[in-house]
């Protein structure tokens, strides 16, 4: 067993975990944060995407022990207490969600992207979302949602 300490969605956690546990299992099974999904288990689909120290990673391919000392955000940590995050609003308003199973992973990829590039172009969005498979939407309304999310986030910054 390994002791790990990390911060997730603003909360400090200290856990004793199995050595071979994935970060995904830590998040879903131990912390009961089931918004993060397992779609393939081998890093192909992106449904398990989380942000670790600001970067999008597949939590199924990350060892739980490697969470030690990091700052993690999952889909549950996106929204502020007073409402939805811009990226969430944008996906609702632009019909970027169908079955919703890939959605948390996509939101986390987009969240990391917008922190890195506040106003991404089509190619940058495409390079980011290529690691998140969606079988329902054909991605078109997702692209629209991401562009809108960037616009909303940009507005927020100006006001803030």
């Amino acid at each position: 067993m390994v002791n790990i300490k990390f911060k997730i969605n603003g909360q400090k956690k200290a856990l004793n975990i199995h050595d071979d546990m994935t970060a995904l299992a830590v998040i879903r099974s131990l912390l009961k944060l089931t918004g993060t999904k397992e779609g393939c288990g081998i890093g192909e689909c992106g449904a398990c995407t989380i942000n670790v120290d600001g970067k999008a990673v597949n939590s199924c391919l990350m060892l739980g022990a490697q969470l030690d000392g990091t700052t993690v955000v999952t889909v549950e940590g996106l929204a502020a207490k007073d409402g939805l995050a811009p990226v969430q609003k944008a996906f609702i308003e632009n019909h970027g969600v169908q079955c919703g199973f890939c959605t948390p992973g996509i939101l986390m990829s987009v969240n990391a992207l917008l922190q890195e590039i506040p106003d991404p172009g089509h190619e940058e969005i495409s390079k980011t979302l290529a690691g998140n498979l969606c079988r329902c939407t054909g991605y078109s309304q997702i692209f629209t949602s991401v562009k809108e999310a960037a616009r909303l986030a940009g507005q927020g910054d100006q006001h803030g």
Binding site: K32, L33, K37, E38, V75, L78, A79, L84, F91, I92
Partner: peptide, 23 residues
């Protein structure tokens, strides 16, 4: 009318319970 999808709020927040999420 392009109204808001019924179940979207839970899906967007990670609250929706798919079978594997049911505890």
């Amino acid at each position: 009318k392009n109204i808001q999808r019924r179940d979207v709020s839970g899906k967007i927040k990670g609250d929706s319970q798919f079978c594997a999420d049911i505890e």
